[in-house]
Each structure stands twice: as structure tokens, then as C-alpha cells.
Design a protein around this nucleic acid. Structure first.
Length: 485
RNA sequence: CGGGGCGUGGCGCAGCACGGUAGCGCGCCUGCUUUGGGAGCAGGAGGUCCCCGGUUCGAAUCCGGGCGCCCCGACCA
């Protein structure tokens, strides 16, 4: 009999660990429909914090929110040739409604470029109407054959930004700006440091001219595409007649961008920070940053509960998200395990012994082992130090993730054999030269299952550019390979 | 879409080869005692054994068909 209160350790079966931790931390649950999931309050609370932070960043960069409908005429999707090719296999289509067959099938949006740019064409007449910078928070549906909680489900929540500009340069700048916003958000909130760069032709978004992405390395050394930003050129503008009159009086097609991140980020957070005890939620995302567990024993019970409540109020005033776990039917130990599984950053314990000494017990989620795991602190010091402790924990998680990424990154491989060796050795990201030949990309994929995650941005490039492609030809660029989610 | 696994109280499972009163752990409810790392005792509630058909005096168990979910591979935020 195994102890089913424990999670399967990551080292034993990483995929099993992930499923268990998501279910048992009550982030999400399976729904009756295959491949779709219910996001539970703890998971949704994390998503809400992500939304709030991202939404602020979008507003700061000049965007407004709007909402476009769920149902899109099939003919819209079919207008852009590459777009329809990319999405056709995963479309869910409404053919029947109100007791009758529909004249034209309606697609449940897999993404909203078509409906949005068709509306933009109505709203934009002059260069004075540009740029048009909108975002929407929505659900989308892509019929997936193989699904995983948060990482790939048929329905998921995301935001999609869609902008229209007068010039290609301005649109390109917007594409890059939003990629940067994503990078900042991932580093500073999720403490998940991504690699950013340009997608290869074979990996880019269907319908885009160029796609950029954020690629984060998970604990099992697989890469997660965590956010994308696309320069759409005039592809959609031409199909939906999105034109404007320029300053010079000429009619021109607008230039578009689109960019998105999804609830997949919650999965990325789990895969980046989680451990064998459960999820670890970075303080800036935690629905509860501190949980106070009163050990309300015997005659002191009332006084202990009052102390817990007083701690809650003090911390709330200090700007900390805090809750008291006053449930009476669970032992303190059971509560400790539960909140550790859910990943609350800091726990405070207060019991009869602490009352007399005016102290509290503080436990940090990432320091559960060893002598120092429980710190005994004077109450006022604990309260005063908490915001700083949360900040340091946030910084620690990022530093730890950066270090893990660097330790699992290899630079240079003269041949596909060497590249394969790196992956045999358990590498995460591998940097090599590339000629730009899709044949080489295909060959590497067959040999190693790794794909080009991106052509890295300057921040991430090797100090000396590679001279040779892994295929043997002259290298035209540096690329990063990884096995991807 | 191919391969594997599973479907039995809320959850996790046993029972099935050999048909005969449906069981265990956890959870849940009530009461009392408890509370510093997954509380104890006592009492209690809760089941169309995935569905349909067949064999049989009798099916969770045998036979046929179907459905669903999970996991592993080809396509993908």
C-alpha cells in the first residue's frame, strides 16, 4: 500500500506528478467533456492575479479592452489561406441551432483575427483612426486530440491583443513591445524566465508574416511556449478590406499585430516551481500570500483565535493577502500539508505557547526541510518583515529558475549527432548554428524529437556566433533547440 | 487517429480465472474527548457494480455489442 496522501515524486514519473499536483492542489478538475477542464477557485485566483497584472501592463502601453463574439462565420475563417489551413483540423463548428440546420456553419472561435479585422475595416477610414490598440479577454476552442490540464485543453482562457497600424515599422515595433511585456510579466510575476526570439517558418502562427515567442524551460527540461506575438503584415487587412486613407491621400492597407497568453501560464508556473510537496505559487500571484493557522488548544483557544485575527488585520493593513484557517475539524498538521500542497508562500502558526512569549512561528514554502524551517519570531517583527520576506521569496524563485535554465543549456554542436548527444545527456535548451534549411530542421526533429524553439533575441545569443549549421552548411543564424510541450 | 489501462458508495481500490446476501481504506453525518506535522473512540448515512442485450434458477463476475475517461505515440496557444 502506497501512502496516497503523498504525491508521486517528480523523479519517479514527472507526468503523473503534474496531474496529481494540479488535481490535489485543487487548481483544476476534469469536466465531463473529454479534454476540457474546470478551473477551481485556487487555480482561478492565480489566473485572476495574472490577468490583473497583464491588464495593467496592457493599459500602460495604450491598449483598451473590448469583447468580440464567440461565434464566427465559417466563411471568415476561410478567407486567409494559411490561417484556415492552420486551424481547420481543430475547429469546432455549430451547424444546427434553433431546431434547424444553419445556412452557414458557425465556428467557435479558435482565435479572433478574422472577426476582429472585419470589424476594424468598418471602424478605420483615416490614418487618424490609427493605431487601433485593442485587447480582449476570452475563451477559445481548439479541438485537441491529446490534452493535459492547463497545458493543452480544448477550451482555454486567454487574452488576445489585436492592433492596426499605418506602417509596417510601427506594427513591427508593437509586436516587439508586447513580446517584451510578456517577458517582463513572466519574469517579475511568474518568476519564470523565458527565452525570447523569432519563430522559424515552420513553427510560426498560421497567417502571420513573423511570429515571436517566449519559451520557458520546465523542470523536466522540456520547453513551454508561454506566449506569442505576431507581426501579421497586411495578410488579414487584405482579406477583410482593412484600409485607410493616408496623410498623402492614398488608400492603403493597415498593418496588424496579434499577441496572446493563456491559462497555460498556470501550468507553466506549476512546472517551473512545483516540488514533491505540491505547487509553489510565487508571492505576487498567490491568492493568499500568508495563511495563519491558529493552534487553538484547550482553554487558550479563544485567545489564540483572537491573536490569529489580529495578525490577519495587521498583515492586511501592510498590504499582504492573508487568510486565517480557522476550520475546527482539521488538526494543525492536516492544514500545514494542505496549504503546502497549494503552495501558499508563507505560513504563520500561533498557539498557546506563543501567546505568552508574544511570538509567532513562520514557515517559508520553499524551506520545508532542515532545522531552520520553523522560525520563532517576535510578533511585531514577523508582521513588519513579511512584505520583505515575500519580495525575497519572489526574487529567490526567479533566481533559482534562471540558474536551472542556465545549468540545462548547452551551447554549440557541430553536427546533428552532437546535438542528439546533448539531448541524450538530458539537456534542455541547445544552441547551434542553422543555415535556415527546413530540411535540417526536419531531420533534427526525426532524430531527437527536438524542434527549433526560436532564433534568439540579442539578449540571449551566444557571445560568439556559430559558424556552422548542424547540418554542415554555413550558419546563417543561431537557433535554440528543445523538446517542447 | 493508432497502442495500453481503467470503469464497483464522494475519492482510492478489492472482489471477477472458480456465478450464490457487495466489501475495505479515506472522506461524510452525530456525540464525546482532542488540536505545535495528515486526531481518537462510539454510533450512523450513503450503491441502477458504465450502458444495452444474451447465457443461467441466479450475473459485479461468463458471452456479444456499445459508451466514457485516463495514460503513451503522430498534429498543436
Amino acid at each position: 500500500m502506497t501512502d496516497d496522501r503523498r504525491l508521486t515524486p517528480r523523479s519517479e514519473d514527472f507526468a503523473a506528478w503534474y496531474n496529481e499536483v494540479v488535481l490535489r492542489a485543487e487548481l483544476a478538475d476534469y469536466s465531463p467533456v473529454r479534454g476540457s477542464m474546470v478551473i477551481r477557485p485556487w487555480g482561478y485566483g492565480i489566473w485572476e492575479n495574472m490577468q490583473r497584472a497583464l491588464d495593467d501592463l496592457f493599459k500602460e502601453t495604450g491598449h483598451e479592452n473590448a469583447y468580440f463574439p464567440l461565434l464566427i462565420p465559417m466563411s471568415f475563417i476561410e478567407k486567409e489561406k494559411e490561417h484556415v489551413e492552420g486551424f481547420k483540423p481543430e475547429l469546432a463548428v455549430v451547424t444546427h441551432a434553433g431546431g434547424k440546420d444553419l445556412e452557414e456553419p458557425l465556428v467557435i472561435r479558435p482565435t479572433s483575427e478574422t472577426i476582429i479585422y472585419s470589424m476594424y475595416s468598418k471602424w478605420v477610414q483615416s490614418y487618424r483612426d490609427l493605431p487601433l490598440l485593442l485587447n480582449q479577454w476570452a475563451n477559445v476552442m481548439r479541438w485537441e486530440l491529446r490534452t493535459r490540464l492547463f497545458l493543452r485543453t480544448s477550451e482555454f482562457l486567454w487574452q488576445e491583443g489585436h492592433t492596426a497600424h499605418a506602417t509596417a515599422e510601427e506594427a513591427e515595433e508593437e509586436t516587439r513591445r508586447m513580446l517584451g511585456v510578456y517577458r517582463t510579466f513572466m519574469e517579475e510575476w511568474i518568476a519564470m524566465p523565458p527565452l525570447t526570439g523569432l519563430k522559424s517558418e515552420s513553427e510560426k502562427f498560421a497567417g502571420a508574416v513573423r511570429s515571436y515567442s517566449c519559451e520557458a524551460l520546465m523542470q523536466d527540461n522540456r520547453a513551454l511556449q508561454a506566449g506569442t506575438s505576431h507581426f501579421l503584415g497586411q495578410n488579414f487587412a487584405k482579406q477583410f478590406d482593412l484600409t485607410f486613407q493616408s496623410e498623402a491621400g492614398e488608400e492603403e492597407y493597415a498593418w496588424n499585430t496579434s499577441w496572446g497568453v493563456s491559462t497555460r501560464l498556470v501550468g507553466g508556473m506549476v512546472l517551473t516551481h512545483g516540488d514533491d510537496d505540491g505547487v509553489v505559487v510565487p508571492p505576487r500571484l498567490a491568492p493568499a500570500q500568508v495563511v495563519v493557522v491558529p493552534i487553538a488548544r484547550g482553554e487558550d483557544g479563544g485567545a489564540v483565535r483572537e491573536k490569529a485575527e489580529s495578525l490577519r488585520l495587521q498583515l492586511k493593513d501592510a498590504g499582504v493577502r492573508v487568510r486565517v484557517d480557522a476550520r475546527d475539524h482539521l488538526s494543525p498538521g492536516a492544514k500545514f500539508y494542505e496549504w503546502e500542497r497549494k503552495g501558499v508562500p508563507i505560513r504563520l502558526e500561533v498557539g498557546p505557547k506563543d501567546l505568552a512569549k508574544e511570538q509567532v512561528v513562520l514557515v517559508n514554502r520553499v524551506e520545508l526541510e532542515g532545522e531552520k524551517r520553523k522560525q520563532f519570531l517576535p510578533e511585531d517583527e514577523a508582521v513588519k518583515s513579511l512584505p520583505g520576506r515575500l519580495d525575497r521569496l519572489q526574487a529567490h524563485l526567479l533566481a533559482r529558475a534562471v540558474q536551472r535554465r542556465e545549468e540545462n543549456t548547452r551551447r554549440g554542436a557541430a553536427s546533428i549527432d552532437e546535438l542528439a548527444d546533448h539531448f541524450e545527456d538530458g539537456a534542455g535548451f541547445v544552441y547551434t548554428g542553422w543555415s535556415g534549411d527546413p530540411g535540417v530542421e526536419e531531420e533534427v526533429k526525426e532524430r531527437t524529437k527536438a524542434t527549433i524553439r526560436c532564433i534568439p533575441d540579442p539578449d540571449f545569443r551566444s557571445s560568439t556566433p556559430p559558424e556552422r549549421c548542424v547540418g554542415g552548411e554555413k550558419a546563417e543564424m543561431e537557433v535554440v533547440w528543445a523538446r517542447a510541450y
